[in-house]
Design a protein around this nucleic acid. Structure first.
Lengths: 160, 160
DNA sequence: ACTGAAAGGGCTGTGCC
DNA sequence: GGCACAGCCCTTTCAGT
């Protein structure tokens, strides 16, 4: 993982369909060299996949909510996580510190669907209670920020 | 937006680097037809981009937190959102219903960095207070669930 | 709106530095 | 590890339906 790898990763985070030739031009390498590096990054699990990003509203999933999952005294976290993974409307699932065991992001079509989904969540074995925060608008999401940028910002913050 | 478009979208959500020829094979269309459809989906804003997904830990961003942003009485939400967007460690930002104005997802290298970031967040004009939930593990994230699957699950739920 | 053809370019393996 | 080359496949455009 050198500076070239990081540049390639940043480029692929910005445009996941960039060709190897294009990436090569950006970082000053031949297409075959980039091809090899990307293959290694994928093999090492650094790059885990490539995904098209879709406007949820335009595919009929206009309602987003963040739901905190309070665990019951009995019940295994891994089992709860597995049950959460079985619900396709649960898009992300984080195990967290604090009163809640998990925070999940849910996407559905309508508030009626949200109500139904919350019912299903509460009925999971090991779930005592949910705490729902409805998303009014997504200002930005999954920004492809390079670690470099983050590091730079944190350095600047340190210097303050 | 017909069934073919939805199939193509689902395929590109699963593999953002799928070739047009490959997509055509999957949905039973020629590569040129797929090419045209994808172009229209991009133009209509249904597909907003393609991104490589990277394991945050392997690029030195091993600490994730969800931070609720409580607004002060004075201060404009849009200004706060703009200030949040300027911090690269803030990966996502949702305006939410409830006590908090926003919930943001933050990724940094260390808990020291997290402390610094929280300081920067609190210093934003219009931010009264933050409430931080540290992520212990990401069970799954940004799963490419097709709206069909979600609709199916919700239908099943309705029938229960 | 899709197909099929054709030209151009990218992909990806091999051999070599 | 990277480059150059080469064969093949894909992309992209365009006429035809």
């Amino acid at each position: 993982m050198d500076a070239l790898d990081r540049q390639i990763i940043a480029a692929l985070r910005a445009n996941g369909r960039a060709t190897y030739a294009e990436l090569g031009r950006q970082v000053g390498l031949s297409a075959s060299a980039v091809h090899e590096r990307v293959g290694k990054l994928e093999g090492a699990g650094v790059i885990t996949g490539y995904h098209a990003v879709v406007d949820p509203r335009l595919v009929g999933l206009g309602v987003t909510a963040l739901v905190g999952i309070h665990p019951s005294d009995t019940g295994d976290d891994d089992d709860v996580a597995a049950a959460l993974a079985r619900l396709p409307e649960v898009e992300s699932c984080y195990a967290v510190a604090g009163d809640e065991a998990f925070v999940v992001k849910v996407r559905v079509a309508t508030v009626d669907d949200l109500e139904r989904t919350l019912g299903r969540l509460r009925r999971i074995d090991g779930v005592a209670r949910t705490h729902t925060t409805v998303v009014l608008s997504t200002r930005f999401e999954s920004r492809p920020n390079s670690p470099e940028e983050v590091a730079g910002a944190l350095l600047a913050s340190r210097a303050e």
